[in-house]
Every structure is written in C-alpha cells, then in structure tokens.
C-alpha cells in the first residue's frame, strides 16, 4: 500500500544494472514470494475453504446464504459507501493540499515540516485515533467540556458512535494519506507544459482540462482506490467508536467470531471475509489498470 503513482519509474533504473549470473536474481525473490505465500495466498485459500465448513467440520452453504441476506448485504453497502465517501473527501481535500504543497518552493522548511506531519498523521489510526477523538469531542472530551456553557455548540455525545462520526475520524488519516501518495504526481507536472500551453494560446482552463487534468486523472483515480481500500479494511478505529452495532463488515466478522448466543457462525465469518477479499480484488485490479496508464507520463 505504500506504492506511489511513480514507482513504475524504477523499471528504467533496474534495466541499466548489470544482470547477475545464474539463479541469484531468482534467489533474491524467494523471501518475497515465501512471505506472500504464507501471509496472503494461504490465508486467502483458507478463508475461501472455511466459508463452506461448519463448526463440526461438515460442508455447509449456511455462511454464503447468510451473507446473501438483506441484513448482511446492507452491512456491505454501508461499508462500501462509507469507504467511498471518506475516500472521496480524502481525494478532493488531499489532492488540493498536495497541489498547494507542490507550488511551494521545494526543500523549504514549511514544506518539509508539513510533509512530515502528513506522513505521521496518515499512519495514526486504530484505537489510539479513536481515543484521541473521544478525549476531544467525546462525552467528557476536552472540547466538549469547554463548550458546556454553550449548549448549541456542544458536540452530540452520540456523534462519534454514528456513521458520521466514523467518517469524520477516518478523514483524519485519509486526507494526509492522499497528500503523501498524490504529491509525487503533482510534482511531476512540468512548468514547461504550462508555458507551452500558454505559448499556443491556451488559457488556465485549457491547461487543466486538456493537459494537466488528463495526465493526473489516472493517479487521482488510483489514489482514490487506494484510499477506498484503506477505509474498507479498517477495523480497530470503528470498533473502538461503535462496539454494539455491526455497521461495517469487519465489525460483523468480529461479532460472528465472538458470538456466544449462536455458535454456528464461523462459516459466516469466513464468508464475510471472502466477500471482502472479492471487493478488494476488484479494487486492486482497477488500480493496476490505472497505474499502467499513469506510468506513460512518468519521466
């Protein structure tokens, strides 16, 4: 997930390096493929199989049937739209911030400090992030307490446990993440392109719609997908904010694994995970296609 829209540029570098003899090059990839096999391929297979196995070991379609139920489809829908919404907010706000940053002098103190700050906040999440918000605008939060004399301004104590609250908290890491992944793309815009547009009689509008826009679009959409997957798979933040309502799929998986009133939900939990894998597989496929296109404009 740390891939930036410009990584494909590495191809050119590696081509100029001498090729080592024998199988040494192949050998170097072994740790990567072993790692992928153990932590990605194997789990995926186990989840796919587990979705059809009941607690007593027999084959079952119950898990899949339950996933198809209107209630579960609703949870998937919520998960999808909240991920899409926070990704959209992140893309728009983060994109604008990244562009603004790219206009500041490269290497200036302000820019370095701001970029460093973005890198930190993009990785700030989970229970700590939830706690930060609870301690600020939760029922006994610092800001809530300060605003108590003004009832109209006091945050609703239930807000953080609502979908709107979760969306707000997600934006805290989505926007900085967008800045980080999108900054290299906007930095790739050459001043010469703009000058060329102006020389040929183009306006700012022409520049953005005919030159910069099309160049940035694949990276922009790719970053959107990255943010989408980031939010879609987030669990701990939402779990800390809302624990008694399964609003998003990861919470429903936890609920199914924990349930002490109904023990037959293991296959359902695996089927939910399988559904998530499918969604992310689609996102990743789209991402790959977009990155292929974006690579054309990378120096």
């Amino acid at each position: 997930m740390t891939a930036t829209p410009t990584v494909t540029g590495r191809d050119a570098v590696s081509a100029s390096r001498p090729v080592l003899p024998g199988g040494i090059n192949v050998l170097g990839t072994v740790p990567f493929f072993a790692y992928t096999a153990v932590f990605l391929v194997l789990p995926t297979i186990l989840v796919a199989v587990g979705a059809f196995v009941a607690r007593d070991g027999s084959l079952t379609l119950n898990g899949i049937t339950q996933v198809m139920s209107p209630r579960t489809v609703g949870i998937f829908a919520t998960s999808l739209w909240i991920s899409a919404l926070t990704a959209l907010i992140g893309t728009v706000c983060g994109g604008l911030i990244a562009y603004a940053l790219s206009l500041s002098p490269a290497g200036s103190l302000g820019r370095r400090v701001f970029t460093a700050l973005m890198s930190v906040t993009a990785q700030f999440g989970g229970v700590m992030l939830a706690f930060a918000f609870i301690a600020t605008i939760g029922i006994n939060g610092l800001v809530t307490r300060l605003l108590t004399p003004f009832p109209a301004l006091t945050p609703d104590p239930g807000f953080l446990s609502s979908l709107g609250g979760v969306a707000l908290v997600y934006c805290y890491f989505q926007i900085p993440l967008m800045v980080i992944v999108f900054l290299p793309a906007v930095e790739g815009l050459r001043p010469q392109w703009r000058e060329a547009t102006e020389n040929l009689g183009g306006t700012t509008w022409t520049y953005w719609t005919r030159v910069a826009g099309p160049i940035l679009l694949p990276s922009l959409l790719g970053s959107f997908l990255l943010l989408f997957a980031n939010a879609f798979s987030a669990f701990a933040t939402a779990a800390a904010l809302i624990s008694q309502e399964s609003v998003i799929v990861p919470l429903e998986i936890e609920s199914a694994l924990r349930n002490e009133n109904d023990l037959g939900m293991d296959a359902y939990a695996q089927a939910l995970a399988l559904g998530m894998i499918l969604v992310v597989a689609v996102v990743m496929a789209l991402y790959a296609v977009l990155m292929k296109r974006a690579a054309r404009w990378t120096p």
């Binding site: 997930m1 932590f39 990605l40 194997l42 789990p43 995926t44 186990l46 989840v47 587990g50 990785q123 700030f124 999440g125 989970g126 992030l129 890491f173 997957a229 980031n230 798979s233 987030a234 669990f235 701990a236 933040t237 990861p250 998986i253 939990a269 695996q270 995970a273 998530m276 894998i277 992310v280």
Partner: peptide, 18 residues
Amino acid sequence: MRKQLTLVAGIAAFLMLV
C-alpha cells in the same frame, strides 16, 4: 493502523493453522 485485508485474512488463517 491500516487493517488491511491481508491482516483480516491472516488472522483467520492463523486461527485455522494453529
């Protein structure tokens, strides 16, 4: 922070592997 799919799947797999 980012509870990626691999993590979710990884946990599930771990539970099954053990």
